[in-house]
Design a protein around this nucleic acid. Structure first.
Lengths: 83, 83
DNA sequence: AATCATTATGATCTATATCCGATAAATATG
DNA sequence: CATATTTATCGGATATAGATCATAATGATT
Protein backbone atom coordinates (compact mmCIF):
# COMPACT_ATOMS: atom_id res chain seq x y z
CA UNK A 1 0.00 0.00 0.00
CA UNK A 2 2.84 2.35 0.79
CA UNK A 3 5.77 2.53 -1.62
CA UNK A 4 9.29 3.53 -0.76
CA UNK A 5 10.58 6.48 -2.80
CA UNK A 6 14.26 7.03 -2.09
CA UNK A 7 15.27 8.05 -5.58
CA UNK A 8 13.76 9.55 -8.73
CA UNK A 9 13.55 6.22 -10.52
CA UNK A 10 11.45 4.69 -7.80
CA UNK A 11 9.16 7.70 -7.90
CA UNK A 12 8.88 7.36 -11.67
CA UNK A 13 7.96 3.71 -11.40
CA UNK A 14 5.33 4.39 -8.77
CA UNK A 15 3.81 7.17 -10.86
CA UNK A 16 3.71 5.01 -13.95
CA UNK A 17 2.14 2.11 -12.11
CA UNK A 18 -0.54 4.31 -10.56
CA UNK A 19 -1.28 5.98 -13.89
CA UNK A 20 -1.74 2.69 -15.71
CA UNK A 21 -3.88 1.38 -12.91
CA UNK A 22 -6.24 4.25 -13.65
CA UNK A 23 -6.10 3.52 -17.37
CA UNK A 24 -4.66 6.93 -18.24
CA UNK A 25 -2.01 7.77 -20.79
CA UNK A 26 0.69 10.38 -20.16
CA UNK A 27 -1.29 13.08 -21.96
CA UNK A 28 -4.29 12.55 -19.71
CA UNK A 29 -2.17 12.63 -16.58
CA UNK A 30 -0.58 15.79 -17.92
CA UNK A 31 -3.97 17.44 -18.33
CA UNK A 32 -5.05 16.55 -14.83
CA UNK A 33 -1.83 17.78 -13.28
CA UNK A 34 -1.34 20.86 -15.47
CA UNK A 35 1.76 19.50 -17.17
CA UNK A 36 2.75 18.37 -20.63
CA UNK A 37 3.05 14.80 -21.83
CA UNK A 38 6.78 15.30 -22.30
CA UNK A 39 7.12 16.29 -18.68
CA UNK A 40 5.24 13.24 -17.48
CA UNK A 41 7.55 11.13 -19.60
CA UNK A 42 10.61 12.65 -17.97
CA UNK A 43 9.27 12.08 -14.50
CA UNK A 44 8.39 8.47 -15.18
CA UNK A 45 11.87 7.81 -16.52
CA UNK A 46 13.35 9.21 -13.31
CA UNK A 47 14.48 12.76 -13.96
CA UNK A 48 16.34 13.70 -10.78
CA UNK A 49 16.16 17.43 -11.44
CA UNK A 50 12.39 17.56 -11.66
CA UNK A 51 10.91 20.34 -9.58
CA UNK A 52 9.32 19.46 -6.30
CA UNK A 53 6.10 21.24 -7.24
CA UNK A 54 5.92 19.18 -10.42
CA UNK A 55 6.17 15.90 -8.55
CA UNK A 56 3.58 17.08 -6.05
CA UNK A 57 1.20 18.04 -8.86
CA UNK A 58 1.52 14.60 -10.41
CA UNK A 59 0.97 12.83 -7.12
CA UNK A 60 -2.06 14.99 -6.43
CA UNK A 61 -3.60 14.16 -9.80
CA UNK A 62 -3.14 10.49 -8.99
CA UNK A 63 -4.62 11.00 -5.52
CA UNK A 64 -1.33 10.03 -3.95
CA UNK A 65 0.78 11.81 -1.38
CA UNK A 66 4.21 11.80 0.20
CA UNK A 67 4.84 10.86 3.74
CA UNK A 68 8.19 11.41 5.43
CA UNK A 69 9.43 8.89 7.95
CA UNK A 70 12.62 7.44 9.40
CA UNK A 71 14.51 5.18 7.03
CA UNK A 72 14.76 1.42 6.89
CA UNK A 73 11.95 0.34 9.10
CA UNK A 74 11.92 -3.10 7.49
CA UNK A 75 8.29 -3.05 6.47
CA UNK A 76 6.53 -5.33 4.04
CA UNK A 77 6.66 -2.67 1.38
CA UNK A 78 10.44 -2.61 1.53
CA UNK A 79 10.54 -6.15 0.27
CA UNK A 80 8.42 -5.43 -2.77
CA UNK A 81 10.94 -2.92 -3.85
CA UNK A 82 13.67 -5.46 -4.38
CA UNK A 83 11.79 -6.92 -7.34
CA UNK B 1 6.09 8.95 13.35
CA UNK B 2 5.12 9.52 9.75
CA UNK B 3 4.53 13.08 8.57
CA UNK B 4 2.30 14.13 5.74
CA UNK B 5 4.10 16.12 3.03
CA UNK B 6 1.59 17.44 0.53
CA UNK B 7 3.27 20.76 -0.14
CA UNK B 8 6.73 22.35 0.05
CA UNK B 9 6.01 24.17 3.29
CA UNK B 10 5.16 20.97 5.10
CA UNK B 11 8.36 19.43 3.80
CA UNK B 12 10.32 22.45 4.99
CA UNK B 13 8.82 22.22 8.44
CA UNK B 14 9.57 18.53 8.72
CA UNK B 15 13.16 19.07 7.61
CA UNK B 16 13.67 21.87 10.09
CA UNK B 17 12.19 19.90 12.95
CA UNK B 18 14.34 16.85 12.17
CA UNK B 19 17.47 19.00 11.85
CA UNK B 20 16.95 20.69 15.19
CA UNK B 21 16.19 17.39 16.83
CA UNK B 22 19.70 16.33 15.81
CA UNK B 23 21.14 19.60 17.10
CA UNK B 24 22.49 20.65 13.70
CA UNK B 25 22.52 24.08 12.14
CA UNK B 26 21.83 24.67 8.45
CA UNK B 27 25.51 24.74 7.59
CA UNK B 28 26.05 21.31 9.12
CA UNK B 29 23.05 19.85 7.33
CA UNK B 30 24.39 21.38 4.15
CA UNK B 31 27.75 19.69 4.61
CA UNK B 32 26.16 16.32 5.23
CA UNK B 33 23.89 16.60 2.20
CA UNK B 34 26.36 18.26 -0.17
CA UNK B 35 24.44 21.54 -0.31
CA UNK B 36 24.98 25.12 0.79
CA UNK B 37 23.51 26.71 3.85
CA UNK B 38 21.51 29.04 1.61
CA UNK B 39 19.94 26.08 -0.12
CA UNK B 40 18.91 24.51 3.17
CA UNK B 41 17.38 27.83 4.16
CA UNK B 42 15.31 27.92 0.97
CA UNK B 43 14.07 24.39 1.44
CA UNK B 44 13.07 24.96 5.03
CA UNK B 45 11.10 28.04 4.07
CA UNK B 46 9.20 25.99 1.50
CA UNK B 47 10.69 26.68 -1.91
CA UNK B 48 8.31 24.90 -4.31
CA UNK B 49 10.79 24.87 -7.17
CA UNK B 50 13.47 23.01 -5.29
CA UNK B 51 14.90 20.11 -7.24
CA UNK B 52 13.78 16.64 -6.37
CA UNK B 53 17.37 15.44 -5.99
CA UNK B 54 18.02 18.26 -3.54
CA UNK B 55 15.11 17.28 -1.33
CA UNK B 56 16.16 13.65 -1.48
CA UNK B 57 19.71 14.55 -0.48
CA UNK B 58 18.46 16.47 2.54
CA UNK B 59 16.15 13.68 3.62
CA UNK B 60 18.96 11.18 3.25
CA UNK B 61 21.29 13.24 5.42
CA UNK B 62 18.59 13.30 8.09
CA UNK B 63 18.04 9.57 7.72
CA UNK B 64 14.51 10.17 6.51
CA UNK B 65 12.72 8.95 3.41
CA UNK B 66 9.63 9.48 1.32
CA UNK B 67 6.87 7.00 1.05
CA UNK B 68 4.09 7.34 -1.49
CA UNK B 69 0.59 6.27 -0.55
CA UNK B 70 -3.06 6.98 -1.28
CA UNK B 71 -4.32 10.29 0.09
CA UNK B 72 -6.50 11.08 3.05
CA UNK B 73 -6.42 7.94 5.03
CA UNK B 74 -7.41 9.80 8.19
CA UNK B 75 -4.47 8.69 10.25
CA UNK B 76 -3.28 10.13 13.53
CA UNK B 77 -0.49 11.99 11.77
CA UNK B 78 -3.03 13.94 9.73
CA UNK B 79 -4.35 15.54 12.88
CA UNK B 80 -0.94 16.78 13.99
CA UNK B 81 -0.63 18.66 10.80
CA UNK B 82 -3.50 20.99 11.56
CA UNK B 83 -1.51 22.64 14.33
C1' DA C 1 3.19 -5.62 -42.67
C1' DA C 2 0.41 -1.55 -42.09
C1' DT C 3 -1.89 1.55 -39.10
C1' DC C 4 -3.09 3.73 -34.84
C1' DA C 5 -1.91 5.02 -30.14
C1' DT C 6 1.49 6.02 -26.94
C1' DT C 7 5.90 7.37 -25.29
C1' DA C 8 10.49 9.40 -25.95
C1' DT C 9 13.40 12.92 -27.97
C1' DG C 10 14.79 17.35 -30.17
C1' DA C 11 15.57 22.60 -30.55
C1' DT C 12 14.47 27.06 -28.82
C1' DC C 13 12.88 30.05 -25.13
C1' DT C 14 12.04 31.86 -20.45
C1' DA C 15 12.46 31.19 -15.67
C1' DT C 16 14.73 29.86 -11.76
C1' DA C 17 17.71 26.57 -8.73
C1' DT C 18 22.04 26.18 -6.93
C1' DC C 19 26.74 27.53 -6.46
C1' DC C 20 29.92 30.97 -4.89
C1' DG C 21 31.30 34.92 -2.11
C1' DA C 22 29.62 38.37 0.81
C1' DT C 23 26.53 40.39 4.07
C1' DA C 24 22.22 41.71 6.27
C1' DA C 25 18.81 40.29 9.45
C1' DA C 26 17.37 37.70 13.17
C1' DT C 27 18.24 34.78 17.33
C1' DA C 28 20.67 33.25 21.03
C1' DT C 29 24.02 33.80 24.92
C1' DG C 30 26.79 36.10 28.31
C1' DC D 1 23.17 45.62 25.89
C1' DA D 2 26.91 43.73 23.41
C1' DT D 3 28.49 40.02 20.94
C1' DA D 4 28.52 35.63 18.85
C1' DT D 5 25.86 32.35 16.31
C1' DT D 6 22.52 31.27 13.06
C1' DT D 7 19.46 32.16 9.29
C1' DA D 8 17.95 34.93 5.34
C1' DT D 9 19.13 37.64 1.34
C1' DC D 10 21.88 39.74 -2.65
C1' DG D 11 24.54 39.80 -7.24
C1' DG D 12 26.75 37.27 -10.75
C1' DA D 13 27.58 32.82 -13.16
C1' DT D 14 26.19 28.30 -14.73
C1' DA D 15 23.04 24.69 -15.54
C1' DT D 16 18.77 22.81 -16.57
C1' DA D 17 13.40 22.38 -16.02
C1' DG D 18 9.27 22.84 -18.35
C1' DA D 19 6.51 25.10 -22.15
C1' DT D 20 5.85 24.94 -26.98
C1' DC D 21 5.74 22.76 -31.46
C1' DA D 22 7.39 18.98 -33.93
C1' DT D 23 8.77 14.37 -34.76
C1' DA D 24 10.97 10.00 -34.00
C1' DA D 25 10.76 5.68 -31.72
C1' DT D 26 8.12 2.23 -29.65
C1' DG D 27 4.09 -0.58 -28.80
C1' DA D 28 -0.63 -2.47 -29.99
C1' DT D 29 -4.13 -4.19 -32.81
C1' DT D 30 -5.90 -6.16 -36.69
Amino acid sequence: MADLARDPKQIGNIVQRARKKLGWNQTQLGEKSGLRQETISLIETGNPAAKLETILAVLGALDLEFQIMPRSKGQASDIEDIF
